[in-house]
Simulated scan of single mutants.
Amino acid sequence: MAADPTHIDALLRAALEPTYLTVRDDSAAHAGHAGAASGGGHYDVTIVSDQFAGKSRVTRHRMVYDALRSLFPVQIHALAVSAYTDEEYQSR
């Protein structure tokens, strides 16, 4: 069973206190894909948080994955992450 995007949103908000967050469910675009057979969904997350300041891209992704750990691999099969500080997001 795929995760509900609102549940992903709530977990990320609780853990990382973002100033901006979008969670997009891309599962329909992956229908028939082997990973989709297990029921896990494909999601795209854009998140802006002060907690990312001074952190590498890899560390930021780990922070997001850690916040969603309870959903892997059954409810989330694939997750694309774009993680920024406020300053980075405003200047992109």
Rank of each mutant, 00 (worst) to 15 (best):
residue 1 M to R: 09
residue 1 M to G: 13
residue 3 A to M: 10
residue 3 A to F: 08
residue 3 A to D: 02
residue 4 D to M: 02
residue 4 D to R: 02
residue 4 D to L: 03
residue 5 P to F: 01
residue 6 T to G: 11
residue 6 T to I: 12
residue 7 H to W: 10
residue 8 I to M: 06
residue 9 D to F: 13
residue 10 A to S: 13
residue 10 A to I: 04
residue 10 A to T: 14
residue 12 L to A: 06
residue 12 L to Q: 06
residue 13 R to C: 08
residue 13 R to P: 05
residue 13 R to Y: 02
residue 15 A to H: 10
residue 17 E to M: 03
residue 17 E to V: 00
residue 19 T to R: 14
residue 19 T to K: 13
residue 20 Y to E: 12
residue 20 Y to P: 00
residue 21 L to G: 07
residue 21 L to R: 12
residue 22 T to L: 11
residue 22 T to C: 11
residue 22 T to W: 00
residue 23 V to C: 08
residue 23 V to W: 04
residue 25 D to N: 15
residue 26 D to L: 15
residue 27 S to I: 05
residue 27 S to P: 02
residue 27 S to W: 06
residue 28 A to I: 02
residue 28 A to D: 11
residue 28 A to M: 03
residue 29 A to N: 11
residue 29 A to F: 06
residue 29 A to H: 09
residue 30 H to L: 03
residue 31 A to S: 14
residue 31 A to H: 12
residue 32 G to F: 05
residue 32 G to P: 00
residue 33 H to A: 12
residue 35 G to T: 01
residue 35 G to P: 09
residue 35 G to N: 09
residue 35 G to Y: 01
residue 36 A to Q: 15
residue 36 A to R: 11
residue 36 A to H: 14
residue 37 A to K: 13
residue 37 A to N: 01
residue 37 A to V: 14
residue 38 S to T: 15
residue 38 S to K: 11
residue 38 S to P: 03
residue 39 G to A: 12
residue 39 G to W: 09
residue 40 G to Q: 11
residue 40 G to I: 12
residue 40 G to T: 07
residue 42 H to E: 06
residue 42 H to C: 10
residue 43 Y to I: 08
residue 44 D to L: 10
residue 44 D to H: 15
residue 44 D to Q: 14
residue 44 D to K: 01
residue 46 T to E: 12
residue 48 V to D: 04
residue 48 V to L: 06
residue 49 S to N: 04
residue 50 D to A: 15
residue 52 F to C: 06
residue 52 F to S: 11
residue 52 F to L: 15
residue 52 F to R: 11
residue 54 G to N: 09
residue 54 G to V: 07
residue 54 G to Y: 04
residue 55 K to I: 00
residue 57 R to T: 14
residue 57 R to G: 04
residue 58 V to A: 01
residue 58 V to I: 14
residue 60 R to G: 09
residue 62 R to Q: 14
residue 63 M to S: 11
residue 63 M to H: 07
residue 63 M to K: 07
residue 63 M to W: 03
residue 64 V to R: 04
residue 64 V to I: 13
residue 64 V to L: 07
residue 65 Y to S: 13
residue 65 Y to H: 13
residue 66 D to E: 13
residue 68 L to I: 05
residue 69 R to M: 04
residue 70 S to V: 13
residue 70 S to T: 15
residue 70 S to M: 07
residue 70 S to H: 02
residue 70 S to P: 03
residue 72 F to M: 13
residue 73 P to W: 08
residue 75 Q to R: 14
residue 76 I to T: 02
residue 77 H to P: 08
residue 77 H to A: 15
residue 78 A to M: 00
residue 78 A to I: 04
residue 78 A to R: 02
residue 78 A to D: 02
residue 79 L to F: 05
residue 79 L to M: 12
residue 79 L to C: 09
residue 81 V to C: 04
residue 81 V to K: 03
residue 82 S to Y: 04
residue 85 T to Y: 07
residue 85 T to I: 05
residue 85 T to M: 00
residue 86 D to Y: 04
residue 86 D to M: 05
residue 87 E to M: 04
residue 87 E to K: 14
residue 88 E to R: 00
residue 89 Y to I: 08
residue 89 Y to C: 10
residue 89 Y to L: 07
residue 90 Q to T: 12
